[in-house]
């Protein structure tokens, strides 16, 4: 029962959090000088043209009225219409979200697999050359600018070697029926292997570039967490009774070392869902990050509000999931 009460409490907190975030974002975007009309009209923003457009867009209403209108609409599931594209905000977000989700999960997958493997190995052979290399590379991974790394990867693998496509999600001309918007999944669902390979080849470089920071982080966290666990008595006992080292590490030690790792993985997922603006720009990836930047540039208030709302929601849910995974990983944790 306690668990369900906890879950309910956590879910109820979502409402005030979203409301608070919405108010802050609303105030902030209206505090930045300039408005959508100025941006739209550009060089031609004469007073008369501005007035007409401000009225047309309903921006002449007082701020609190605008916010209240927005809020009551959201309560009814209506996030409004994008000022720039005249398209429903939800439609805009859902058309971009799959690209970001696909890229995020691919990057996290790479980071988790390699991060944990390198982290565990580094801890296991502490102070060896491998350990030092892992630490060195993880430092490099955190500090290397993704923009630069992306460029170098494109230059090497696309322009020089010709192995991978330069940018985009799919080779122009390859048709793919969109079901989920995740191209890898859609192509599998429609048994379109040509599109699957093509989408995978497009995904590799941006995912690898995007994974570097998380990968480096995971290596470090895994290593230090693993080092702690490896010093525990039960590990010594397990080894003393002659268990294979691989079993000791991957079956007994790793599970206990996972809690901090799960925390950083959760945070990374939530962070990357906000869109990796640089990666999405370098690789022409049509995701949420680019949409958010464009909408801020255009002062597209409804769209900015919608995206931030979605991100806050994703953050809360992922944090909740992380907390729930703790309980699974460590039976001592009870809610």
């Amino acid at each position: 029962m306690a668990f369900y009460r906890y879950l309910l409490k956590r879910l109820l907190i979502v409402v005030p959090t979203l409301l608070g975030a919405s108010i802050i974002v609303f105030l902030m975007i209206h505090l930045i000088p300039g408005d959508p009309v100025t941006v739209m009209l550009g060089e031609r923003a004469t007073d008369a043209a501005r007035e007409a457009l401000i009225q047309k867009l309903g921006l002449d209403q007082p701020l609190h009225v605008q916010f209240w209108t927005w809020l009551t609409n959201v309560a009814q599931g209506d996030f409004g219409i994008s000022i720039r594209t005249n398209t429903a905000v939800t439609e805009e977000i859902f058309s971009r979200l799959p690209a970001t989700v696909e890229l995020t999960f691919a990057a996290i997958f790479i980071a988790v697999v390699f991060g944990i493997f390198f982290g565990v190995t580094a801890a296991r052979y502490r102070n060896s050359i491998f350990d030092q290399m892992a630490i060195g590379f993880s430092l490099l991974g955190v500090s290397i600018p993704i923009f630069w790394l992306g460029m170098m990867m494109i230059f090497l693998f696309s322009v020089v070697m010709g192995w991978l496509p330069v940018s985009g999600r799919l080779t122009l001309g390859i048709s793919l029926e969109t079901i989920t918007g995740l191209y890898l999944i859609d192509s599998l669902l429609t048994a379109n292997m040509r599109a699957f390979w093509d989408a995978l080849r497009h995904l590799v470089m941006p995912a690898a570039a995007l994974s570097t920071v998380s990968l480096a982080l995971f290596v470090r966290v895994t290593r230090s967490s693993m080092l702690d666990v490896l010093n525990e008595d039960y590990v010594r006992t397990a080894r003393a009774k002659g268990l294979n080292m691989n079993i000791v590490i991957y079956k007994h030690a790793l599970k206990n070392a996972l809690i901090p790792i799960v925390t950083v993985v959760g945070l990374s997922v939530a962070q990357l869902l906000g869109g990796a603006v640089l990666t999405e720009t370098v690789f022409s990836w049509p995701g949420i990050g680019r949409l958010l930047i464009t909408s801020i540039g255009f002062r597209d208030y409804p769209l900015i509000q919608g995206i931030v709302f979605m991100l806050v929601f994703a953050f809360i849910i992922i944090n909740l999931l992380v907390d729930l995974i703790y309980a699974y990983l460590d039976p001592r944790i009870r809610y």
Binding site: M151, S167, L172, G173
Partner: peptide
Amino acid sequence: IIWKVVPDASTRLMELQAGE
């Protein structure tokens, strides 16, 4: 005719160099 969106100028040039 296909009009492709490639926001970054360096990526655009590499698209051209790679023949894409």
